[in-house]
Each structure stands twice: as C-alpha cells, then as structure tokens.
Design a protein around this nucleic acid. Structure first.
Length: 477
RNA sequence: CGCGGGGUAGAGAAAUGGCAUCUCGCAAGGCUCAUAACCUUGAGAUUGUGGGUUCGAGUCCCACCCCCGCAACCA
C-alpha cells in the first residue's frame, strides 16, 4: 500500500451460530459487500470481514439438544453461513470464527492487556436468577414476586465475576460521539445511544464462572470471558492483533461497522470503552440498519415466517436479491419484505426495466449496425449522484438514480423511433445506439457493486465485439 | 410523566422553509427495436388532529391522537 492509497476496513457483526442464516443477517452482509466492492473500485485497499460467533452457554445447550459435540455443531452451522454468503455473491476478505486458534490467542492477549490497564477488578454479583431465562432478571421486572414469563420465583444468587470499569468512560464517549470522531448513523440511533449514556453507565461483568464453552481468563481458569466481550474483539483479532502487527496497524481502526439496530449499545458503548482501555483507537463509524417485517408480520421462528436467503437466490438469483433488499427499504429504516414484493421488483425494475433496455439496445445494434461498435462514446448522462449515494450508504437513493436513467433511455428510444429513422438517416441511428451503449456501460460500472454478475454480462456483451441480440438478463417470473 | 421510532394518493417511498415528486396498482390512448415489453395522458393527497412562527410550513415551535419496537428466538 502506497502512502496515499486509502485503506477501508469494513465489518459486519459475527453471527451467532445457534441458527442458520436468514434474510436479516444476509441484509447486513450484502450491504457490507457492496461497500467493499465500491471502495475497491475506487482504488482503496479494502478489508471486508464477516464471520461467526461460536461460544457461549446457549450454543453449548443447542449442541447438546442436537446430540452433538459443540465443535462439531458449530462447524456445521458456520459452514452454512459461509455457503449462503457465497451464493449471494458476497466475497469477504476473511471469514472469522471465534473458535479459530488465532482469535483465541488474540483474545487472551487482549484480556491480559485489559488486566494490566487496571480497568478491571474482581467482584461479586448478586442478583435474582430466573431458571427459565437462564439469566438474571431485575427486581423491577417481577410481577407479584415471580417472573412474568415463567411464573416461577427467581433464586437469589451470588456469583464471582471480573468487572470492567465502564462507568469511567461516560464523558469520554459522549464527547467522541457528539463531535463525530465516533460517528453513529443514522442520527436517530446516535440520539438513542447518547440518551442511554446520559442515564449513567454501570460497570459490567466481563466473565462468567459456569460457562464451559468459551475462552478461559488467562489468570483465572475458572471463569470464561463473557461472549459479547469476546465476540467484539473479533474485529481486531481478524486483522492480526497480537500476531501480525503490521497488518493490524494498516487496517485498524475500522472505517465502517455495520449492524442491526439491536446491538448498537454493545458496539457504541462497551466496545469503544474496551478499546480505549487497552490504548487502541475506536472505530470511525457505526451504521445501524433497521429490521424487516415479513409481509407485515414480525419475523420470528414461532410464526415460521423466517426467510432463508438461499430460497430467494434459487428462484431469482443473487443479484436480484441484493438489488431488492437494498432498493426496497431505505438503509437505516425498518421495512417490510416479502416474496410478492421481490417479484414485483424483479419483473418491473429488472426484467422490464434494465433487462428489456439491454435487449432492445443490443438487438438494434445487431440489426442496424451489423453488431459493430467502432467507437465508444462518453455516457450521455451523469451518474455520479448514484455513486455518491452508494458511497454514503444511501443505497435505495443510488439505485433510484440509476433507474431514472433506464427510464430516460427508454423515452429517448421511443422519441427517436430508430425503426423509422433507419430508413431515412442511418447516421443518426448509429449515434443514438452508440449513446445507448455508452449509457449502459456507465450503468454497469455504477451498478457493479450491487449487481456484479449483471454488470459483467452487460460489459462483456458490449465490449466483446460483434454484438448480437443478448439473452435476457432476467427472465420474468 | 419510562426510552426510542413512525404517521404524505389504494400500497411503498421522495421532497436545502418556495409549483407536493417517484415506483407499483388502476383507467384511456400510442408504438413495434425489445422480455405481452416500451412510450404518452388521466384519475387518485385538506401531508394524523388542533394551534403558533413566517410573505410562504410536509418541513420550524407547542399541544393532542394513533401505530410499531424496547420479554423470548433474533440483524
């Protein structure tokens, strides 16, 4: 990397392997892939990280239910994620697993650093433990002295834990967030985090005594590190923390961390505080996207409406799923998706829109120009606003801009009537078609981060010489 | 007084305080290069309600009404 070459480090959360991938995890990962491709296109040195989170009591329990050893169990599920991303055309630079030895070593190093920082201490946690929840619940949550969900009386339990002095970072975090050194987007999420911090931060337990499936504290083997703390550190261990210092220095801090809105508190409060404690820089930007409902209903296993992205990919192709999710819902807002909506976009925007424009253009080039393009024009429309929108994570807006030009091109053809003009002024038809080819090439370029396969088809057809009427890009369903 | 998000044609979304726009759907017409595609026109909105600021408010201020998250699986 030369001195003036920018680097771009983008991450998704690592996904918890107690279930297979669904449309929500796919959404985050697609968005990250689009940004990675875009920044790579701009000549930056990009590192795109995703992976799986494989430790914790819940995983151990899920493995037991499945009658498997934890490692065997997580190997299987992790592979499903990896495969799903592959089928969606997602190409991370690294797929980290928290059971990787290098991650475990890095976390151990990190924990030692944290201990040396003096920001952790041993303490006793006393609380009400609900067996049904497998977790502590607050006294304020009880109804008539029993857990409202399980109707059981919680036990008073004492636990030895190691604590992190999160409370010391309140004003530091407020400052970093407010002055945008630590940029939380969208604005609404930033306000949420700020008001949460304002209520006061309490020290947090970073270890658990009774969880076997996890990384032991280096100085206290009876305790394993709390899964969240361990999981967050993947962003550092993946790029060589404690092992490949050169690479770590090159990419850290992360430029953008993408995630769903549910986990911003971990990423915007605990994570930057932990990093600061060990003397590392904090990420530049966190962007939290919204949640999907499916055909108007909340997505849940109990309703059985969880969408497997592979099903959609099988029916519509990776590019179409990528396009649909990013086009349908403004990034950062909640939205509703369904196969019906996907179908409308597929048939309307993709098949009738871009696909048909490509067909009629290549057909006319074959018919009126004998398949020959002898010089390449500059695109007649400026698509920089689309690229800029994608760059700013405003994916829906960027795609709208591109499709405005598809509509413009269709209008241009209908106005020019090349099928008549050909008889009287073939020179003008040629000019029209060269302009259309140039526009399509520009669209392919700007669209390629979102729809890499489609962009390649357009480019290879138009730049391949001896152009024939192209096969449909999208066959209507 | 818990916290947060939201309310704009039938549906989904846009609109630096300045003609309310786009897509889908609906109605009518046109065209033939194209995937029954494409193009044109039309109908459809008192921007949740009531006040206020302003030459001018979807946008800024105040009050109210309604919907959705904040327990679990879970991005």
């Amino acid at each position: 990397m030369t001195k003036d070459q920018k680097k771009f480090y983008i991450t998704t959360p690592i996904y918890y392997v107690n279930d297979k991938p669904h449309i929500g995890t796919a959404y985050t990962t697609i968005a990250a892939d689009v940004l990675a491709r875009l920044h790579r296109q701009l000549g930056e040195e990009v590192f795109f990280l995703t992976g799986t989170d494989e430790h914790g009591a819940k995983i151990a329990a899920a493995a037991e239910t499945a009658g498997k050893k934890p490692q065997e169990f997580v190997d299987e599920i992790s592979a499903k994620f990896s495969l799903a991303w592959d089928q969606l055309g997602i190409a991370p630079d690294k797929f980290i697993r928290t059971t990787d030895q290098e991650h475990i070593s890095a976390v151990e190093k990190f924990l030692n650093q944290l201990k040396d920082s003096g920001k952790i201490y041993e303490g006793e946690y006393q609380g009400l433990y609900c067996v049904g929840h497998e977790a502590f619940i607050k006294e304020s949550e009880l109804v008539n002295g029993v857990c409202p969900d399980h109707k059981t009386k919680p036990q008073l339990l004492k636990e030895q834990n190691w604590f992190f002095k999160l409370s010391e970072y309140q004003s530091f975090l407020q400052e970093q967030i407010t002055n945008r050194d630590f940029d939380i987007q969208p604005e609404a999420r930033k306000n949420e985090v700020l008001s949460f911090i304002k209520q006061g931060l309490e020290d947090i337990a970073i270890s658990r005594p009774n969880v076997k499936w996890g990384i032991p504290l280096p100085w206290d083997k009876n305790q394993t590190v709390y899964v969240w703390v361990e999981a967050l550190f993947n962003y550092c261990s993946a790029i060589g923390y404690g092992q490949d210092d050169e690479n770590f220095k090159k990419f850290w801090p992360a430029d953008v961390q993408l995630m769903g809105k549910d986990i911003i508190k971990f990423h915007c409060v605990i994570w930057p505080a932990l990093l600061t404690a060990i003397g590392e820089k904090i990420p530049k930007k966190v962007f939290a996207h919204g949640f999907f409902t499916v055909a108007g209903e909340k997505m849940s296993k109990s309703l059985g409406n969880v969408i497997d992205p592979n099903d959609w990919v099988a029916g519509y192709g990776a590019d179409a799923v990528r396009y649909f999710l990013l086009r349908e819902v403004p990034f950062g807002q909640d939205g509703d998706v369904s196969e019906d909506k996907l179908k409308v976009r597929f048939n309307g925007d993709l098949a009738n829109g871009l696909g048909n424009l490509f067909s009629r253009t290549t057909n006319m080039i074959e018919k009126y120009l004998d398949g020959q393009i002898d010089n390449f024009y500059k695109s007649p429309k400026d698509l920089s606003e689309a690229s800029e929108a994608l760059y700013n994570l405003d994916f829906a807006h960027g795609l709208v801009k591109i499709w405005e030009e598809v509509a413009w091109a269709n209008q241009l053809i209908d106005k020019a009537k090349p099928w008549e003009l050909y008889k009287t002024d073939p020179g003008k038809v040629k000019e029209l078609l060269l302009n259309l080819a140039a526009l399509l090439l520009d669209i392919a370029l700007k669209l390629s981060p979102v729809m890499p396969e489609t962009a390649n088809k357009i480019r290879s057809t138009l730049e391949g010489g001896d152009i024939k009427k192209a096969k449909p890009l999208f066959l209507k369903i």
